[in-house]
Amino acid sequence: MKKVIAREKLPELWKSLSAQGPLFLPVQEGPVVLFQQWQEGAKINLEATNTAVPPKDLFLPREETYMQYRCKGKELEVIPAEEVKPAVLFGVHPCDLSAVELLDKVYIEQDPADELYKIRRENTTVVALSCTEPDPFCFCNDFAINPADAPGADVVAHLKNGSLLLEAGTDKGKTLLKQAEDLLEDGSGQSFEPGEVKTADFGLKLEGLPENLKNRFDDSAWDELYKSCLGCGVCTYVCPTCYCFDVEDFGHEAGGERFRCWDSCMYGHFTEMAGGHNPRPGRKERIRQRFMHKLQYYPETFGQIACVGCGRCLRSCPVNLDIVQAIQTFGGETVEQC
């Protein structure tokens, strides 16, 4: 199913879609662009290549309350949270879409499935938006992602000649386009041929990297690589393929709620045990965990490197310690940029 809508008419589309359920899309929030729920007057920014924070929030929310509890005397009552409503996520770029597929492997395909994630995923219609211009930090070409195309999305959208072209790729996508039928015109005369977008190419040698890393846990290169790390969690929070979480209670003896929220392997308390023993006590162990997980552990289990080249860690790390540096350190070759 192919449809087209003029850009001027997009505000009507947003309004119509959000009347049927929450609609999330890239919104300009002061100096940054973030996926936010549409509301009247929101400044939609479809030009921005990458949002500051990835859309994983829609499926693995930074905070999700999944039960309430009530205690009365010796009794404990557990009340599960209500199921989430169907939503539309609009404007996901191909790198972020690939990242969601990486998360699916952990949260849906690997037994036991995580129902909280799975329901959100099933209830969300994802509209991918192809890139027209790469961000200076993008390097998804290194991961064989074509930023101009997004196979696998429910709907793939392209910004072309003042219009938005929409092509449904799944039944969910078709349903969505049908819902907005009144606003959309037939797009069968339009060219949906994905163009080609070139991102920066670090010339990373990824083939064989996971195998190569297997024996480099004790490599002295880690002693150097971690040094500039400040020990903050920016890289993990802006990473579309990071998925660690914490489970916490909020409340008092009589009642409260339990939620899960994002957590980061970069924090000291992440692995600290009740007795005080910490298997990953320092920045070196934690940096190694993060990069080994992306480049060796995850690939060993799921057959692919857990990075999509979105460039967020290159942009956001306050000290420019990013995954490209890690890959280069451990065998990926580099093309000098400056």
Binding site: V53, L230, C232, V234, Y237
Partner: peptide
């Protein structure tokens, strides 16, 4: 509104020369 964007990544704290406590109140 400004603080609603906070991810609690603590980059502000880790980069800061006055945040030198051995254990931060956050933890």
């Amino acid at each position: 509104k400004e603080l609603s964007r906070c991810l609690r990544c603590y980059a502000c704290r880790q980069a800061c020369p006055f945040c030198s406590c051995r254990e931060c109140f956050v933890e």
